[in-house]
């Protein structure tokens, strides 16, 4: 588990006013989820699978182009895939079944297909999710999840987490800068003596901040529910635009099944 997860939450969203940006968050969430389902449902073994993957790739890149996302942003989104790429690359070596020789290496045919298929599916889904995250503000995403009937308490926890994730990460970064400017370089397990208490004080500070936030909320009349504006109705046209990505993908899948 080399690199850590995540990063600054603020760096995820790319402001814009494209059609994709203006779609309601829950419409986009449903669209991306449905797209991922279509991608996952494509059988890896079929001869036309790779043509279908190419079609899906064209669709998701088209959506990114409509949203005016730069290739750089998309590549940055793909970085989360790296540990998984290693696993997929191992597949041809460890899978069973008939083997073929490629450049002097004995590889399993089914492993090659499975590893390649896994990689293609994961890449397509990550691209779609990156388009979603880059065109939707975190707060809007929360409201989208709420409209998709996520329990209210869970949405509140999510909203506090998103609101304070950058604050807490910022404290962590400042503590690291302070340590390193005093000559600290983590080299071996002995560094835990320094890093353990740092993480511990981060926990204590986060928890105490939570207590202060709770008191501040109580003094503003918090009763266990967060007030929000009533959600605006979504026009059918919006649904049509939002679902065009998965519907087109489903059409590609259907065409593949008919032809293949």
């Amino acid at each position: 588990m080399g690199a850590g997860h995540g990063g600054a939450l603020g760096a995820v969203y790319v402001p814009g006013s494209s059609v994709v940006h203006r779609l309601a968050a829950h419409v986009k969430l449903v669209g991306v989820l449905a797209f991922a389902l279509v991608v996952v449902a494509t059988p890896v073994g079929a001869g036309w699978a790779w043509a279908a993957y190419a079609g899906f790739l064209a669709l998701v890149l088209g959506a990114a182009a409509v949203a005016r996302l730069t290739p750089r942003r998309l590549v940055r989104g793909l970085a989360v895939e790296i540990p998984f790429v290693v696993f997929a690359l191992l597949m041809p070596f460890v899978a069973r079944g008939p083997r073929i020789e490629v450049a002097g290496l004995s590889l399993s045919e089914s492993g090659l297909a499975a590893g390649g298929g896994l990689l293609a599916k994961a890449t397509l889904s990550v691209l779609a999710a990156t388009v979603l995250a880059a065109t939707t503000e975190a707060r809007e995403l929360l409201r989208g999840l709420e409209r998709l009937r996520l329990p209210a308490v869970l949405v509140q926890i999510l909203s506090f987490m998103i609101r304070y994730a950058d604050v807490v990460s910022g404290e962590l970064r400042r503590m690291r800068v302070a340590r390193e400017s005093r000559g600290f370089r983590p080299r071996h397990l002995g560094a835990l003596k320094v890093l353990g208490p740092a993480a511990a004080s981060l926990f204590v500070r986060s928890y105490e901040r939570g207590e202060r936030v709770h008191l501040a909320m109580l003094s503003r009349g918090y009763t266990g529910r967060l007030a929000g504006d009533p959600a605006a109705a979504v026009a059918p046209a919006q649904w049509a635009v939002g679902l065009s990505l998965p519907l087109a993908a489903a059409a590609v899948l259907g065409a593949g099944m008919l032809v293949g």
Partner: peptide
């Protein structure tokens, strides 16, 4: 608030 802040801590410490 407390679960939210603890989740923010977990998120940060995983980095």
């Amino acid at each position: 608030p407390l679960a939210g802040l603890t989740a923010a801590f977990v998120f940060a410490v995983q980095m």
